[in-house]
C-alpha cells in the first residue's frame, strides 16, 4: 500500500505504524458521569467495518506525524489522507 502523505507525498505503508480506528482521537471526558463505561468502549470496543474505515497511522520512519487515513478494508484502497492534527482541530480540539 502507498500512503499519500499530505506533506511528504507517496510513501510506502511499511514506513508507518498502525494504531487503529481514528475514533481514538475522541478521548472521552474523564470527569463525566459515565466515564468508566465510556472508557471501556473507547479502549476495547470497535466498529470494525467491512468497507470504508478511518484509521490512525504514525509515520515512524518519516516525519513522525500522525495521519488519518481513509481506507477500504475490503480492497485496501486508500481514498483520503489527512494530518491527524488537522482532523482533531476541525473537531474543535486545541491540539
Amino acid at each position: 500500500m502507498i500512503i499519500h502523505h499530505p506533506l511528504l507525498g507517496p510513501r510506502d505503508a511499511a514506513e508507518f505504524v498502525y494504531l487503529g480506528d481514528a475514533a481514538l482521537i475522541d478521548r472521552p471526558d474523564w470527569q463525566a458521569e459515565n466515564a468508566a463505561e465510556a472508557f471501556h468502549a473507547y479502549g476495547y470496543l470497535r466498529d470494525n467495518p467491512a468497507g470504508v474505515h478511518q484509521e490512525l497511522w504514525y509515520h515512524e520512519q518519516g516525519d513522525r506525524s500522525w495521519l488519518v487515513v481513509t481506507r477500504n478494508t475490503v480492497n485496501h484502497e486508500i481514498s483520503r489522507v489527512e494530518l491527524a492534527r488537522d482532523v482533531a482541530r476541525a473537531r474543535g480540539r486545541g491540539r
Binding site: 487503529g20 480506528d21 468502549a41 476495547y44 470496543l45 470497535r46 466498529d47 470494525n48 467495518p49 467491512a50 478494508t73
Partner: peptide, 18 residues
C-alpha cells in the same frame, strides 16, 4: 473473521478487529 459484521446486525460492537 466476520464477527464484527454479523454482530453489527444485532447492534453489538465487539472487542475485536479483523
Amino acid at each position: 473473521g466476520s464477527s464484527g459484521r454479523v454482530m453489527a446486525l444485532a447492534g453489538m460492537r465487539l472487542p475485536i478487529e479483523s
